[in-house]
Amino acid sequence: MAFFVQNALGGLAYGGLLFMVAAGFTLIFGLMRVVNLAQTSFYLIGAYVGLALLGDHVNFWIAAVGAGLVVLVIGVVTYGGLLHRFHTKDLTTLLITLGVSLILDDAALAIWGGDPLSVPSPAHLTSSMTIGGAVFPVYWLALFGVAVLVGLALWFFQQRTRFGAIVRAGVDDEEMVRGLGVDVNRAFYVVFAIGAFLAGAGGLLGGPITGVAPGLDGDLLALAFAVVIVGGMGSLSGAFIGSMLIGLVDTFGQALFPQLAYFTIFAPVALIVALRPQGLLGRKEI
């Protein structure tokens, strides 16, 4: 029982941090057809920047927002400078983001070095809790809670605001939205900025669980792929469900088959691709 509770909670917390990365990934793809391979590099940079802010005695949550904002700037520059003009050319933008991710990784290595760093939990959440005999850090629950809040906020933004309506319309029929005189380009920038911000803030928020080290982004990228393949490319709720599923599978996998841990996430991915290639909540034409 304790084993189950422990890993279930760990899995949800891990799913929470995956969602911080995957939400932006799926939104950006859904609207702009840009497969942003730099998304987990944004996470990595966010973690390093956040850690640097913590070193200056900035409050943990403010540091997370600060990291998010720094990455947001990087993201918007990347999008405006390199990606926007290749709109609709999905392969071109994919390769550019791959190049950007190599550049960002190497920049992180140059600035912060190659040693793995650990990120402390926020001061008021360092204690542990006990449920059903399982002892776990309170921070796990907090991280899951943050992911739920972010998910709800994004959902509200997408479904209940005028801007969200433009984004949804842009996903469905971009040309028509343009034809109606709506500035879709602004939506592109805003969505890319949101995605980058979430990944950057997620870097520090997830830091207490993942730590920070070169190569972390590649690790997370495979998991983010798994999330969007399972959940369906472009679907926000799919990303949430996928994140939690992959978080749980990965955590239980690490516990049960430590040597093959990374490989266990392949099982649900293969199953989904075989039975439902568009993902659980994805749409057919993607």
Binding site: F29, R33, V35, L37, L94, G218, F225, I229, V269, V273
Partner: peptide, 19 residues
Amino acid sequence: AKGVGFIILTLAINELMWG
């Protein structure tokens, strides 16, 4: 998978093998 999905899956295979 189709189009971009194929690319992502092949990239994921890479990462899986690395893992």
